[in-house]
């Protein structure tokens, strides 16, 4: 036999079980942007610090997508900007699509 208090407990449990996270687009854009920019900057900087005959042979291919980028110190800063921008776009897009899909799905 159920009592009002057990009904309420079940409702509470159901509420907690069916609540789905919403992603904040701006926060996601900020986090992905920071990670993207920092990652590309550090990747470039590490290669430059290690030096070698052909520095960053593969990484420099990114200039196919990021015009002006190269494995040089100025390029590291340009990469920082590109990495931040593209990371932000990816983060924002993931959050935006996630929220739209989550909104349209039945709870639970």
């Amino acid at each position: 036999m159920t009592t009002p208090s057990t009904d309420m407990a079940q409702l509470e449990a159901e509420l907690i079980r069916t609540t789905v996270v919403r992603l904040r687009s701006r926060v996601m854009a900020l986090v992905f942007g920071m990670v993207g920019g920092t990652a590309l900057f550090l990747a470039t900087a590490i290669l430059l610090a290690r030096q070698g005959l052909e520095v960053g042979l593969h990484l420099s291919l990114l200039n196919n997508f990021f015009p002006g980028y190269s494995v040089t110190w100025p390029g590291a800063f340009i990469g920082l900007g590109y990495g931040t921008l593209s990371g932000a776009i990816v983060g924002w897009s993931v959050a935006w699509i996630y929220n739209r899909v989550a909104d349209r799905r039945p709870p639970g």
Binding site: T19, V20, I97
Partner: peptide, 18 residues
């Protein structure tokens, strides 16, 4: 809110699309 879970289909769709 604290224990809200992620919607696997929504996150899959988002990561997949991007």
């Amino acid at each position: 809110d604290v224990f809200a879970t992620y919607d696997p289909v929504a996150l899959g769709a988002a990561v997949g699309s991007v």
